[in-house]
Amino acid sequence: MNPAAQAQQQDLLKVEPASPAASGAPVTPTTPVLCLCGAAARVGGRTLWSGVDLEVQAGEFVAVLGPNGVGKSTLVKVLLGTVPAAAGDIRVLGRRPGEAGHRVGYLPQRRSFDSDLRIRGIDIVRMGLDGDRWGVPLPWSRSRRAEQARVDEVIELVGASAYAHRPIGQCSGGEQQRLLIAQALVRRPEILLLDEPLDSLDLPNQSAVAALIGRICHQEGVAVVMVAHDVNPILHHLDRVVYIAEGGAVCGPPSEVINSETLTRLYRTPVEVLSTQDGRLVVVGQPEAPAVHTDRHTGREK
């Protein structure tokens, strides 16, 4: 496809975020915490996606969806600043990616801890707080007590108090994931970037962790950008979705994006979205992206 046609295609696909604040008069112009404008990512010479426009406000829950290998994790890494964007303007909390420091919390794609790793869950959470500091901490100092209180508080928030003192390797997948969310939250980030946090959890744990993330997002006012393979566990918590296909992307409220017309336009091939009785969505006919999976699982980008 020639570039002009591609650009045209992407213009068609762009769905302006329909935020309720935008319709009213600009009384308090809320600056978005996350802002992508015409962003593109290239890994190993291949353009994963381009022309991505997205604005995320504080307290919004956004899911990044799409087939395997399309560059969902790369989007998170671009926001994190570990992978440079190939084009476009990206602002994270009004600064360039990677410069917002601890104001951005990050949960990478599924890490499992060795079952014989003898470090407690609470220590893993604590590393999120002060693990990057040099030197020896002074025990019994005042700030130390405040930090301990914060660690306990965030463990309470994710409901992990019962097993936080067990070695992390002996916790179940769902328990580990809650502790890792606590680790990402411990510094009170304003943005939480989650890469497939529900991957390899069983169904009850998926909905429990999804509910936890939704609660954190809406109650604590943390903007959440979450890469997901399956939209259903998080569907009724979501404010917006970004659907990435090879080349382009489309974003908007779930009902406007995850329907047959939009996805058919995005993939340029017939895609059907079916809705089950209990409101779950099934996407049929979605093509898998070419098998370039180097951006998944390994974490090595260069």
Partner: peptide, 23 residues
């Protein structure tokens, strides 16, 4: 070891998050 101990522990147990945190 005393100076690098904490970041080293972080990088040993959880390298991805440690790297994202600037370790």
């Amino acid at each position: 070891l005393a100076v690098i101990g904490r970041p080293l522990l972080f990088a040993s147990v959880d390298p991805q998050v440690a790297a994202a945190r600037g370790v």
